[in-house]
């Protein structure tokens, strides 16, 4: 498969602050590619540079074969963008928004009409197109924005935090639409998100990004595999659990042992039989296990593995989120 996007040593500095630090990666045609990272990691900055909104400080970026600094207009013809902040005209109806978008992209009346029917169909928005956008639910407004984004047959569609602020059901619904879009229209999709589930569910490949640097790029499956084949967390009742750790280190199917808060996290080879073995082992040596849990590693574990911190550390603080967004606006 050919590369739709080629990024080499891309760097962006804002007044000496490095927002994007020597990023190198390629995106293949037809892929759903995700940038996963906490707020302020540099995802949006990268996207903006790919969309020709921001100029890179250094490094080279090619989108659809054109250089971002020299081929700006050519790139703009072959991409679609759905911004993080909603920018649909709320005083107009969905159809008018789509229609205006088509005109701006020089689509003729007939082409526009046909294409609007197509995108409405694909995003399951039929029957909603003549309602004023401000009267629609947040999820539906977002779907109209996505519909508008791919209306002009872009080769690449950028979705910047597409489900930010939506509830989980609406989010899942939008994911399915994005997936359909990728499969039916064959559009390459570049997604930025700080939702682990979103990256896991949608992306063919994920770039884990933290503090402007790409930690790793791989499929969600591979990323998870690297973390460990399975994860067992153990909680012990008594003291002296260090002795148990020593004991566990002797077992060759335990790949990694780590204390997290009061529980012991083990990366193990094998499945449920290991739980049993651990319980037996503990019994033999007089340790009491109060809780034991076996689970498949998630992309969140992968994130932790590669960056050394949890993606959710920054989340939860609404103030922090607001600050990041405001800072982004002023640029």
């Amino acid at each position: 498969m050919s590369n739709v996007i080629e990024i080499e040593n891309l760097t962006k500095e804002f007044d000496g602050l490095v927002a994007v630090d020597h990023v190198t990666l390629n995106v293949k045609a037809g892929e759903v590619f995700g940038f996963l990272g906490p707020n302020g990691a540099g995802k949006t900055t990268i996207t903006k540079m790919l969309c020709t909104i921001l100029n890179p400080t250094s490094g080279s970026v090619k989108v659809c074969g054109y250089d971002v600094t020299r081929g700006r207009d050519s790139i703009r013809e072959c991409i679609g963008i759905v911004f993080q902040d909603s920018c649909i005209d709320k005083f107009l109806t969905g159809r008018e928004n789509l229609d205006f978008h088509g005109r701006i992209y020089h689509m003729g009346r007939k082409t526009r009409g046909e294409r609007i029917a197509e995108v409405l169909n694909l995003m399951e928005l039929k029957g909603k197109e003549d309602i004023k956008v401000s009267d629609l639910s947040g999820g539906m407004q977002r779907r109209f924005e996505v519909a508008r984004g791919f209306m002009n047959h872009p080769e690449v569609l950028f979705l910047d935090e597409p489900t930010l602020g939506l509830d989980i059901q609406t989010r899942r619904n939008l994911w399915n639409h994005i997936r359909t879009l990728n499969e039916q229209e064959g559009i390459t999709i570049i997604l930025t998100t700080h939702y682990i589930e979103e990256a896991d569910y949608l992306c063919h490949r994920v770039a884990i990004i933290d503090q402007g640097k790409i930690a790793v790029v791989d499929t969600p499956g591979k990323l998870k595999e690297v973390v460990g084949i399975n994860l067992i967390s153990l909680e012990l009742a008594s003291e002296g659990s260090d002795d148990l750790v020593g004991l566990l280190r002797g077992l060759d199917w335990i790949k990694e042992i780590e204390w997290r808060n009061s529980s012991l996290e083990l990366n193990v080879e094998g499945g449920e039989e290991r739980v049993l073995q651990l319980v037996e082992l503990a019994n033999e040596h007089g340790f009491v296990i109060t809780a034991i849990d076996l689970r498949q590693p998630s992309l969140e574990d992968a994130f932790l593995h590669y960056t050394g911190r949890e993606i959710r550390e920054d989340e939860g603080s609404v103030k922090g989120l607001w600050k990041t967004r405001m800072a982004g606006r002023r640029k």
């Binding site: 969309c51 020709t52 909104i53 207009d73 050519s74 703009r76 013809e77 963008i81 911004f83 902040d85 909603s86 920018c87 649909i88 005209d89 709320k90 928004n97 205006f100 978008h101 701006i104 992209y105 508008r148 606006r329």
Partner: peptide, 14 residues
């Protein structure tokens, strides 16, 4: 530019 349509239009090839 900040909240509306124009933001989208500014990245169109026009």
């Amino acid at each position: 530019k900040e909240f509306g349509f124009l933001k989208e239009v500014l990245v169109a090839p026009v």
